[in-house]
Computed example of a mutant assay.
Amino acid sequence: MPIQPVGDAAVEGTIELKEAYADGLKDLDGFTHCIVLYHFHVSDDTAPLEVEPFLDDEQRGIFATRAPQRPNPIGLSVVGIESIKEEMVTVTGIDVVDQTPLLDIKPFVPEFDVPSDADTGWLTASESTIRSKQADERFL
């Protein structure tokens, strides 16, 4: 599993909704990407407020990291949409554990979701290695 979706954009996965929610996928096939919100169901439920994140060897505040151990264990990924058939969405760039409970799917809209003046704080120093890093034992 890549540590972030950009770690391996070719990773393919399937999002399976309950049949009762299948109609909610109508028109999502017109988008190339979607935002997936999910519950970190295998993460430790005692999240420290400071962690040593991947790409760094310094303690950082949990809200300034993407660490999966969180006070409220909710994850977010932007994934590519490959296909939608009934209640199944095939996606690429997924970075979640199998059987992860899905909370929501939203269309990714660059005009809404990508601020033109964003700064990446302490991560700026590590940008060149973000795409090559894999999860380690801290994130399992």
Rank of each mutant, 00 (worst) to 15 (best):
E137V: 15
F31Y: 12
I74K: 09
T129F: 06
M1K: 13
D95P: 03
F108N: 02
I81H: 00
A125Q: 09
T65G: 00
D104S: 09
F31E: 03
E58A: 09
V91I: 06
L17C: 10
E12N: 11
H39E: 08
G93E: 01
E12Q: 15
V6F: 11
L37T: 06
A9R: 15
G93V: 01
D117V: 03
P73I: 04
A47T: 14
D23I: 12
I15Y: 04
G24H: 10
L49M: 14
S77F: 06
I15N: 02
P48K: 08
H39C: 09
C34D: 03
I84G: 06
V6H: 03
E127I: 13
T90I: 12
G80C: 08
P110Q: 00
G75I: 04
L55T: 05
V89A: 01
L37R: 04
H39Y: 15
E52N: 10
T14W: 14
D27M: 11
K133D: 10
Y38S: 13
T65M: 01
F139Q: 15
I84T: 09
M88P: 05
Q4N: 08
E12H: 12
P71N: 04
G61F: 12
G30C: 13
D23A: 15
E12D: 13
P68W: 02
M88E: 12
Y21A: 14
S132K: 10
L123Y: 04
S128C: 05
D29R: 08
E127T: 08
P73H: 01
D23T: 13
N72I: 08
H39R: 07
K26G: 10
L140H: 14
E19P: 08
I105D: 00
V36K: 01
P101W: 05
I94D: 06
I62C: 07
P101E: 01
T124L: 09
K133Q: 15
D44Y: 05
F54A: 08
T14G: 10
I35A: 07
P48T: 07
P53W: 03
Q69H: 15
P2V: 09
L76K: 11
T100D: 00
D104T: 07
P110R: 02
K106Y: 05
Q69R: 15
P73W: 04
H33T: 05
D117C: 04
P68D: 02
